[in-house]
Design a protein around this nucleic acid. Structure first.
Lengths: 235, 235
DNA sequence: CGCGCGATTGATTCGGCTCAATAACTGTGG
DNA sequence: CCACAGTTATTGAGCCGAATCAATCGCGCG
């Protein structure tokens, strides 16, 4: 399933410009290049498991990933997504704690593994990169706080509406306005924090209300302002 | 209400050894000392407001603080607490975003304000301090993820039980095992993400079940293992 | 062509919220 | 030091959002 591939070179990697690595010097780039290893993952493969230790980070060169925790009834909670240019595993690495979440691919994905020593070297020697990491972490922390408040206070209907808008923003749309990620109803439920059936019913409501169009796992938002109103977003 | 006080010197501040500043050099300490300003806050005062910009961080030299967001029905959601030795405001500062939460004192509190320039200097010049910040942020991020999963999946009874255990761990107990923080029923509800009445009913249940003892705002956990079981915690 | 998983729909249940009324408590000023 | 006003806590009743349970459907694939 997982197989080593011809390593994509960072300097030709289309994902780099969007990543925390965008401002590395040529020397640093080739240093990273030399230390990393790249692998291909099929759809649905687990990259790492919650609770384990990790000794580096993964950079997504192509593909999409979900990060999730398993609650004690065995139910999955999706915490965040990663796509081209994003890194995963840095939280556990930097906190020196076990992984707080598992990661699995949502489609065919290419990942580069960058060892801890390499990351620490960049942090220590490149203030700009270091600051990018601080910024990334603190941004994520702010996002997490927002999610906490919404989970605690908003009804499912509003949360689902917002989730759709966030998915659209995160993964963008193709020429037909279809959100570029394919999730099962259950996975959507596991983002929103609700039951699969509730997602199904509400999606069908949104459809009736002409807010979205759905075809299998393809979702298109046809009335963004109205859906935003349903989501009850002000900020 | 807020009045400038004789600045506590960092090198005699009892809170320092527990803080991210614990390993600064004497020179760095006196540098921080020179740049900071200290203030006293009465109980219930707001330190900063969600949405504003901040130009430094606050270090708690004495007292207790709640950080919270206001949801769009005007309901408060408590995101975290800060006590002696903790810093607040660093998330917004480092992400260069507006404050994601407001902060208010839970009791009489002394705070030192450390300007942004000073913090950035420490980050740039003291790798050890820098690493402490990275570690702090990534630890917080892990905690936030845990909260998300629990909010999404656990019933109120379990969340309240866990909240009590966390409060005990965070604020410790006095010689009578009473948790050292005084919160209103409403504030507890705003941590758990539930209605005030639900907290009242469940606290009274826990009392009947001999898990806790309650007297006004004083809470004592009398059976930690049993309450832990109620909280349904495994990890 | 049938198996099996994911999606859908309906019926029912229930946790937890809201609303309302009362009680206890806190601080304040006379 | 007490009475009053304004919170905060408590308790009860009723309702509703959303979960669960059950059955069926649809399809992708071997």
């Amino acid at each position: 399933m997982k197989k080593r591939v011809e390593p994509t070179h960072c300097d030709t990697c289309g994902a780099r410009e969007k990543s925390v690595f965008c401002s590395l010097s040529p020397d640093e780039i080739s240093d990273v290049d030399a230390s990393k290893s790249c692998n291909f993952y099929a759809k649905g493969q687990v990259i790492f498991h919650e609770g384990n230790r990790i000794n580096g980070i993964y950079c997504v060169s192509k593909g999409k990933i979900k990060l999730f925790q398993i609650g004690n009834e065995g139910k999955e909670q999706i915490i965040r997504f990663a796509k081209e240019g994003d890194i995963i595993g840095y939280r556990a690495l930097l906190s020196e704690e076990p992984l707080s979440a598992s990661a699995a691919t949502l489609e065919e994905t290419s990942l580069c593994f960058i060892p801890k020593s390499q990351l620490l070297k960049l942090i220590a020697n490149n203030p700009n990169f270091n600051f990018k990491m601080l910024k990334l972490l603190s941004h994520e922390l702010g996002e997490a706080a927002k999610v906490i408040t919404e989970l605690a206070q908003k009804p499912v209907r509003e949360r689902l509406a917002e989730t759709l808008l966030i998915l659209r923003q995160t993964f963008e749309t193709d020429e037909n306005q279809v959100i570029q990620v394919k999730l099962s109803r259950e996975e959507i439920a596991n983002i929103v924090g609700t039951a699969t059936e509730s997602v199904i019913r509400l999606l069908s409501d949104f459809k009736k209300e002409k807010l979205i169009e759905v075809e299998g796992r393809s979702i298109k938002i046809v009335n963004i302002p109205a859906l935003t109103r349903v989501a009850n977003i002000f900020e």
